[in-house]
């Protein structure tokens, strides 16, 4: 509501920054897509390993579960210390001059690494929770019919895990789309994803930037709703995924 005068409906905040909004949305979608894909792959591999190896699998499962309660801010700080230009990894490799720009680089590598690391633990947890009871018998049946370990994973474990992978993919995608801390700590100054832009405008000294911050937030919500609707439609249509 304006300080003076009656509120007036206006689309200025939408029209004025349309190209920046499109750019920020594209960046957010890119980060979310790559993080989701990586976390699905790594999460499934972790789950398959835990199911296959009873003893070492338990260690891996505990470590993976311990990753989940770590707050994203702390995780982002840790990834920053690990991957920055004078960070742990670079010192381990002997301070090469050609160390790539991972933190605050143009491809958001550190941001994606942080999300993939944390969310793969989540995906592994969800997959294990959903299939661990039924997978043992089915794998034994496949083994008696002559399937190798690799065939068992591709033909038995993966199809069993697809429903939980699909649901956790949707969750991880929408979460990373709206997540602020890792993108702010580890991303470049420009271009910026939607949540970073929204917070920057909201906390700006210039109060006239508030409507633009709200617009950015609403665009983020709209993109998330579109993604969730698509996911629900796809899941409904494929009965095998339910």
């Amino acid at each position: 509501m304006p300080f003076f005068g009656p509120p007036q409906f206006s689309a200025d905040a939408w029209a004025g920054d349309a190209d920046e909004l499109v750019r920020s949305s594209a960046i957010s979608l890119y980060i979310a897509a790559v993080s989701t894909l990586l976390s699905l792959v790594v999460g499934f591999v972790l789950a398959a390993y835990v199911l296959a190896m009873p003893r070492t699998g338990r260690i891996v499962e505990t470590l993976s579960a311990a990753t989940i309660p770590i707050p994203h801010v702390i995780g982002a700080g840790a990834i920053g210390l690990l991957l920055s230009d004078s960070g742990f990894l670079e010192r381990l490799l002997g301070m090469p001059d050609a160390f790539p720009a991972l933190v605050s680089g143009p491809w958001f590598v550190a941001v994606i690494a942080e999300y993939a690391w944390k969310e793969s633990a989540f995906v592994a947890l969800v997959v294990l929770g959903s299939i661990s009871r039924s997978v043992g018998d089915l794998c034994d049946a496949a083994a008696t019919l002559g399937a190798f370990a690799g065939q068992r994973i591709i033909r038995v474990v993966l199809p069993l895990a697809v429903p939980s992978l699909a649901v956790s993919a949707a969750i991880v995608f929408v979460y990373t789309l709206g997540s602020y801390e890792a993108a702010w700590l580890l991303g470049p100054t420009t271009p910026e994803p939607l949540p970073v832009r929204a917070v920057r405008l909201f906390t700006s000294v210039d109060l006239a930037a508030r409507p633009q911050a709200m617009v950015t937030a609403l665009v983020s919500v709209a993109v998330s709703v579109a993604v969730i609707s698509t996911a629900i439609l796809v899941l409904r249509r494929h009965r095998s995924l339910r």
Partner: peptide, 22 residues
């Protein structure tokens, strides 16, 4: 630094760069 493609987030980030010798 970084050919101006990105800038430190705030004063503390710049202090860290300075401390790391960048």
């Amino acid at each position: 630094w970084r050919e101006g493609a990105t800038y430190p987030r705030d004063e503390q980030a710049l202090n860290t760069l300075s401390a790391d010798g960048e």
